[in-house]
């Protein structure tokens, strides 16, 4: 709660102190200063900032995030409309990333210094370095324009069928997952490598356990806490960090909503979305902390 209050105060203050007036954008290019002033008054922006903050905070505390200046729709409704695409994209991205990166990381650690390890390290550098939009355009060029397998853009809701839903998400999720594959694979490799040097691994091997069991049951399980931390932080960052991917693939998600709201100075929407992101961030961090108990029985709160 204190974290959210700090976020609320900071976001509100930053928006009001930054240059830009939603009334000027709403009025259009030919509007006069008087018309803009009239719109500003209609939006309540001519009141003292403290009064504006008090009104907004009062509404937020009663569960009302306010109404968009432009669409005159509840901010909660706008967020609701954009939630599914962003969460679907984030979930598929992390699923892809985890399914690919964790085994790769374990294998690279197991064969440290081998070709797989070197390839993975090389891929990681590439994955971190290549800008998301460049990768997106390359994938679109290959899979959509040349091969014609997948759509260039757009989003199909899951209610329209799993097939169209996945067809539209494969490319964006692949694009986004590359950087997370690189990150998680490196952390997994480092953690597993550390675990592989422990005495209990030598003991397990001395007992004649199969190598797969040694790697998964003993090495990976003991390396799980840092991996879970990275995955958790990745999820939290993803929710708010999908702007470029959503733009290139024309996915109407929360990232685009945030950018549009910022460019238009739609204060209630910006405040609502950032507050929502903060709640998600806090919740994800809480879940990560709680997961430690399951992953490492030595940890107790």
């Amino acid at each position: 709660m204190p974290v959210l209050l700090v976020v609320a105060v900071l976001v509100f203050a930053l928006l009001r102190l930054a240059p830009g007036d939603p009334a000027a954008i709403m009025a259009g290019d030919a509007a006069t200063a008087e018309q803009i002033a009239s719109i500003r008054a209609g939006l309540g922006l001519d009141r003292p900032i403290v009064v504006q903050f008090g009104i907004w905070l009062g509404k937020v505390l009663s569960g009302d995030l306010g109404e968009s200046f432009y669409f005159r729709i509840k901010v909660a409704t706008l967020i609701g409309q954009r939630l599914e695409p962003t969460f679907a994209l984030a979930a598929l991205t992390m699923l892809l990333a985890v399914l690919v990166s964790v085994p790769l990381g374990v294998l690279a650690a197991w064969r440290q210094g081998g070709w797989l390890d070197r390839a993975l390290m090389g891929f990681s550098v590439l994955g971190f370095s290549i800008p998301v939009f460049v990768l997106a355009y390359l994938l679109i060029w290959l899979f959509s324009l040349e091969l014609g397998w997948l759509p260039v853009q757009g989003y199909a809701r899951i209610a329209e069928g799993v097939g169209p839903f996945l067809r539209h998400l494969v490319l964006p999720a692949t694009t986004l997952s590359v950087i997370y594959i690189a990150l998680i694979a490196r952390v997994t490799r480092a953690s597993v490598l550390e675990a592989l040097g422990e005495d209990y691994i030598r003991t397990a091997r001395a007992k004649g356990l199969p190598e797969l069991r040694v790697l998964v049951r003993h090495a990976l399980a003991n390396a799980a806490v840092p991996i879970a931390t990275v995955i958790g932080i990745g999820v939290a960052i993803l929710i708010g960090g999908v702007v470029v991917t959503e733009s290139v693939y024309a996915i109407p998600g929360l990232g685009r909503l945030t950018v549009d709201a910022v460019l238009a100075r739609d204060f209630p929407t910006i405040q609502g979305v950032i507050l929502f992101f903060s709640v998600v961030y806090v919740l994800v961090n809480l879940l990560i902390d709680l997961s430690y108990v399951l992953l490492d029985p030595r940890i107790r709160y």
Binding site: W141, S144, L145, V152, Q153, G154, S247, V248, R256
Partner: peptide
Amino acid sequence: WNLALRDAQAQVNALARGE
């Protein structure tokens, strides 16, 4: 009216594909 498709290159790609 597709209001989500704002990226200039993505627009060209989508038109080329007939989307």
